[in-house]
Design a binder for these strands. Structure first.
Lengths: 114, 114
DNA sequence: GCCACTCCTCTCGATGGTCTAGAGAAGATT
DNA sequence: AATCTTCTCTAGACCATCGAGAGGAGTGGC
């Protein structure tokens, strides 16, 4: 029922998070806001998906975290990319480009060759 | 880890199947072959994913099936798109285009405006 | 001082699409 | 007769995501 439910493509969350953090360190809530903002609310990340994803990324040493105080004077865990995370982002990006191009190729197919 | 596993983007299988059938009716094995062929093996559909997907599509009346004999003289269940399936394909395609454009937008973001 | 609101973290259980790993049938080829 | 190819189909498990929360701490209004 892919109604208007979630517009978040499965499997892209980690890449999106890594990309967001590659621009600047952010806390969880900020990552979610940022992705929504850039995509004009087409992509929405809910917290129940985000925190487990952050934990997975941290466990693989693609991001590291640190408690800090926000501009609003609240405690928040800031995440930033590691060198391995940067490499990982490049890989995921390449895979995304290859796969999405392939999907577009199938969608564009009209019965010609192949 | 840079999983060389499946290159199939989650959530795109049904759309790919509908698209494939929109060109011509095919049996399950043929659908899988066809998608691999067009995408130059970037996308691979394994049977354990395909048949449950076909069953879901059939149950929603987006495709209908019929036993026929193939060119190789074997029994095969041919699937073809219904009118509702054609409509559904258009919807999924629109959603895919919106979402993948949004993902590309996030990937292209470099810290400028939002 | 108290209350509502925003900011922000985090958890649990359920859902559901996909994968692994098969079984099995029947025509074709050797 | 044995094996390959074509083709359908299933069971169990995995695991990312989602829905629906709980909770804590600072801010601003009254």
């Amino acid at each position: 029922m892919a109604d208007d439910r979630s517009e978040l493509l499965q499997g892209t969350l980690e890449m999106l998070v890594l990309k967001t953090l590659s621009v600047e360190p952010l806390h969880g809530w900020g990552i979610s806001q940022r992705i929504g903002q850039i995509s004009r609310q087409v992509l929405t990340v809910n917290q129940g998906s985000l925190y487990p994803a952050l934990e997975r990324l941290r466990r693989r040493d693609w991001i590291r975290s640190e408690w800090r105080t926000t501009e609003n004077n609240r405690r928040a865990r800031y995440y930033e990319l590691t060198a391995a995370g940067r490499k990982r982002l490049a890989e995921e990006r390449a895979a995304w480009e290859r796969s999405s191009a392939a999907v577009n190729g199938v969608l564009a197919w009209d019965g010609g060759d192949a």
